[in-house]
């Protein structure tokens, strides 16, 4: 990145928000807004993002922003879009940014409605794989064998027994023009995808893998490191889908075993301490391998999307 003058004057998401140390979500949002520019209205359902940006009188949002409830982010966004259309405000666009609790679980019906109608909303899920705002409870986005506070590992429990819900595929099945996954590890790639999504009209979806030091259990300086390992292991496939077809993937430069990802986080600690843990790790490895296979993350062809250190 070249030297340029940057300060809070240029930020649309300014300092003083109350996210935890090293919060991946706040970092993602900063870069989302850099990509969208200022002419967007942002809708945020209840969750971490809402909580750490909404204490009365202290808003970091330099774009118009609305939080209403937990399960209705997409419907609120639809309402804003309808109002803009009615008022012929064509230069303003609507972006919804929610967590996995609101997106995968409680707001899923609302989201499906918005997608099916094709409302002109870019919906971004900043996915940290559990309900972090309330201390890390299981969501349908939590990865298999992760320990969460409502599905904790214990003598008779390995944590969550189900796989993460494959939401991008479900969303693509609605027939929307653009679906992408991104990671806080690759911020330029993230920005590029947001910009690309803004080039489409209709309902669009981006899912950003967002690491959470506080609940995943890793030091706050390793937010990007852990996210990178997620991508490099195949646990977090990065791809784009246009009109239902996978059109672009971010290749894995050097594949790492899933252990290298899992061992960085306390939420997977139990599968390493357990004598039978190998089996669980193998199951997770098989999932990563199937991602790699499904999306062609390791093909020998030159990376379509050159690896860039952000």
């Amino acid at each position: 990145m070249s030297t340029q003058n940057l300060s809070n004057d240029q930020e649309l998401f300014v300092s003083g928000h109350r996210a935890c140390h090293g919060c991946g979500m706040s970092l993602a949002v900063r870069h989302i807004l850099k990509a969208t520019g200022k002419d967007v209205i942002v809708v945020t359902p209840t969750g971490c993002l809402e909580t750490f940006t909404s204490p009365y009188g202290y808003s970091p949002w330099r774009v118009p922003w609305i939080h209403h409830l937990f399960e209705n982010g997409p419907a609120i966004a639809t309402g804003v879009v309808a109002a803009l259309k009615a008022q012929k405000r064509e230069s303003e666009r609507v972006v919804a940014i929610g967590g996995d609790g609101s997106t995968f679980d409680i707001g899923f019906g609302s989201l499906s409605g918005m997608l099916e109608r094709g409302d002109d909303v870019l919906y971004i899920c900043v996915d940290n794989g559990a309900y972090m705002n309330t201390g890390g409870q299981r969501s349908s986005a939590s990865p298999i064998y992760s320990s969460t506070t409502t599905d904790p590992a214990g003598k008779r429990s390995l944590g969550k027994l189900q796989k993460k819900k494959d939401l991008p595929t479900i969303i693509a099945a609605h027939g929307v023009p653009y679906v992408a996954t991104a990671s806080v590890a690759y911020l330029k790639d993230l920005q590029k995808k947001v910009k690309k999504a803004m080039g489409y009209h209709g309902a669009r979806y981006i899912q950003i893998d967002s690491t959470c030091p506080s609940v995943w259990g890793f030091p706050s300086d390793q937010t990007l490191e852990v996210a990178r390992r997620g991508v490099q292991s195949g646990m977090v496939p990065l791809f784009e889908m246009e009109d239902g077809e996978v059109t672009k993937v971010r290749k894995i430069k050097k594949k790492i075993p899933v252990e290298e990802y899992l061992k960085t986080q306390k939420r997977f600690k139990h599968i390493f301490s357990d004598a039978d843990g190998r089996e669980e790790i193998q199951t997770i490895q098989a999932l990563a391998d199937s991602n790699i296979e499904r999306y062609g993350l390791l093909k020998k062809t030159a990376p379509q999307d050159a690896e860039v250190q952000d």
Binding site: N72, A75, I76, G79, V80, A83, A86, E116
Partner: peptide, 27 residues
């Protein structure tokens, strides 16, 4: 000449008009 939104639940029906109201529209 109204934007007529066919929602998937009453929860969304009330939410859509709330969002529209916040954006300055009679709903």
């Amino acid at each position: 000449d109204s934007q007529y939104v066919r929602v998937e639940s009453e929860f969304s029906a009330a939410s859509v008009i709330s969002g529209a109201s916040a954006a300055g529209s009679r709903s």
